[in-house]
Amino acid sequence: MSLPNISRVSASGLLRSSRDLRWLLRSVAPLAAPRRALTQMGYRRPGQPREDRPPWWRVKFDLAKGLKGMKRHFKLLKEEFFAPFVGPMGKPIMEHMLEQNQVLWEFRGPHSLQEWTISCDREIGGKSEIYLKVGRNNESCLLYGTLCSDPPKDGETRYSGYCTMRSKQPLASFDRKKYHDWSSFNTLHLRVRGDGRPWMINIVPETYYIHQKDDMYSYFLYTRGGPYWQDVKIPFSKFFLAHRGRIQDDQHPVWLDKINSIGFTLGDKADGPFQLEIDFIGVCKDYAHTEDFAYEKYKRNPEV
C-alpha cells in the first residue's frame, strides 16, 4: 500500500515543479538569439550594408595556387623552427642585446607597398580620395589624395572626412598571427616629408577581450611642409589610449611585446589635397629618455 502513495506523491511533486518552471520561463526573455549576435559580428560603419553571405563563398579553389601556398607555408615553418636556435627573432644573442636601432619598414620599390593598405570615407559614402604609390627613384612611398568632410546623405552618418594608411597584420606559417616585438626599444623613429598637415599615428596592440578589439594608441605627427625631410622621434610613453576615436579615462602604457600594426590617419577637417612622403619607419632606444608614462594613471586601490 505504501508504493502507490509514494508514486502518487512523487508524481504530484513533479507536476508542481514543472508548473513552477513553466511560470518562471514566462518571465524570462526568449532564448532565441538574433542571426548575428553583437559580440560575434565585426564593427559595421554606419551606412555600410550588412553582408549575410557565409565566409566560404569568398574562397576560390585553385589546385595550383593551393600547392604554391603549401610550399610557401612549409618554408615559413622551417624558418620558424630553426630561428630560435640562432637567437631571439632569428638574430645572434649579442646582436640582439646591442641593437639600438631597427628599421621596420623601408620603402624601396613597389614590393614594399604590399604590406600596407589604405582606406577613406568613400567606403561609407564619403567623397574623400586616397592613393599610394612609390616615390621618385623608388626610394620612398607617397601617400596623396583629397580630403572632403561632407558627410554622406544616408540619414545615419553625421561626421566624415578621413583618410588612413595602415600596415597589414604580419602572418606566420599557415596564416597564424605574428606580432612585432618592440619591447627592447622606447622610441618610434620616422623620416617623413609632408605638406604641413597634422597626422595621427596609431599603434594597434594585441588585445585579449572582444570589447578591446578597437583599442589603439595614438599620438600626433606634425609635418613642417616644404622640400626638406624631417626626422621625427616620438617616445612610446607619449601615446595615449583611445577607443574608436574617443580618449579613455583609464590610461596605461602600450604593451610593446605584441604589436599588430601601425597606421597614419588624416582628419583635420581641412578640405583639399594632401600628401605625405615616408622614407622609413623604425624604432630606436633613446637612453636619454627616462619617462615611464606621460599621462595620469588612475589607481583603483590608491595607497593610504
Rank of each mutant, 00 (worst) to 15 (best):
R224N: 12
P205M: 01
S7E: 15
L14E: 08
F240E: 12
D121I: 02
K285A: 07
I210R: 15
D257P: 06
H252W: 09
E51I: 11
A294H: 12
A11W: 03
F274T: 02
V254L: 13
H243Y: 05
R246A: 04
F81P: 01
M70A: 15
Q102P: 00
G135Y: 00
G245T: 00
R44C: 08
K127S: 11
G135S: 02
L113I: 03
Y295W: 11
W23M: 06
W105C: 10
Y217K: 12
F236R: 03
G135N: 01
S237L: 03
A270T: 03
R19M: 10
T39D: 09
H73T: 07
W105D: 10
N260M: 04
Y228V: 09
T265S: 14
N101D: 14
H211L: 12
G263T: 04
A33R: 01
E99T: 05
M41W: 01
R72D: 06
D181V: 00
S10L: 15
E80I: 00
L241C: 08
R122M: 09
I262E: 01
K177H: 05
K65L: 07
K133H: 10
K285N: 12
R45G: 07
K153I: 02
D250G: 14
V304A: 07
D257T: 08
I118F: 15
H289E: 11
I93W: 10
L25P: 01
S10A: 13
